[in-house]
Design a protein around this nucleic acid. Sequence first.
DNA 1: AATGTTTACGAACGGTCGGTCGCTTTGTAG
DNA 2: CTACAAAGCGACCGACCGTTCGTAAACATT
Lengths: 207, 207
Amino acid sequence: MTVDGRLARGERTRTAVLDQALRLATVNGLDGLSLSQVADALGVSKSGLFAHWRSKEALQLAVVEHARAQWTDEVIRPALRAPRGVRRLWALHDRRLGFYEAGVLPGGCFFANANFEFNARPGAISDRLGVQSADWMAFLTRLAGEAVETGDLREAGSLPFLMESLGVCAVMQAPVLGPATFRHARQALLDHLRAVAADPTILPELT
Amino acid sequence: MTVDGRLARGERTRTAVLDQALRLATVNGLDGLSLSQVADALGVSKSGLFAHWRSKEALQLAVVEHARAQWTDEVIRPALRAPRGVRRLWALHDRRLGFYEAGVLPGGCFFANANFEFNARPGAISDRLGVQSADWMAFLTRLAGEAVETGDLREAGSLPFLMESLGVCAVMQAPVLGPATFRHARQALLDHLRAVAADPTILPELT
DNA sequence: AATGTTTACGAACGGTCGGTCGCTTTGTAG
DNA sequence: CTACAAAGCGACCGACCGTTCGTAAACATT
């Protein structure tokens, strides 16, 4: 199977641009993203970007999808290796906070940033963010439901909303209050899970 | 006591500008705020703004303080009318969510928006936001400590962080998931408070 | 009535923005 | 070798940005 060298090159620049644009978007905002900045940071020309995306909004939407793929690869998929139930819920929370702590994105969390940036601005980007938000909450709800099925939990209750809350708040406060924020976010969920889990001993101790 | 008509007029426009700028900042971002937009929305000239603030950043800092004053008037002060202890904690949470629900600011919460916007951008504005964030968390911690003193709670634990988390997450998700979000945010804190309160009966039922 | 101050305005400036156009380079296919 | 297509570049456009400056009106002070 031979590949077209031109298309391959295009694909390479495309992902390089999306990587850079994603990082920049978490710092200056998805809307504050400037095509000149992205182009200069990669040593390409601004007009060359229009060969891949016909407008800034098209690039922004591509960044949203790129962020979703990264989130799936680095947070969701690793967490799914944990056994179903309360341990998987904990793995997801732990992995998520680890993603923030590692500083993969200089601005913390792309989705939290973007949701707050577009929460009062209708349009294609806001719509897409809304769908992804709903998907994410549905995923959390499904995992909590599984924990009830396995008998780990008596009931799901507000657990999905609580997990999302702790994650979002942690990434918001971390730049101000320092790394201890993540310890709070872990401790808070661990306390809650221990209180509602049928067998608290399957949950780890915080080191 | 006679007042200088010029100063009075200046003060009037100043607060009118800050009101408008605060609302606009919650929609387009504190940095996305455009002086032309603010000026046009109030029917004043753009250059006239520089008679009151010597730069855009000065106006932005003034907006931050204006938002703090509004938050104190409409959330903190009313909540302080509730008796010390767990009822005051609940009143604060309830009042906060009510502030979001009422749509006082079209973009939800100024501070959450601004924190996420500036969480990776050093500068005077970020510094000011950081101080206010720390103050706010200290206030929550003080109220939780009072609830321990009054005997309402055995221990504060992660309660301040939890309250902040639920509030922030609610205002983030409300535009996407609708008003039910606030019910979740209230229920989640109420469940937690009932679980840790010495006397759960002093807490209200959700209607 | 004369003087000074505060508020506010209109015009203009340099700079950056998103976007367009014509061109060159690189690689594929016949 | 030729014809074609995709990738990428440089020059340029109109629009908007924050900011400056000179000026005029409103008002207080003397």
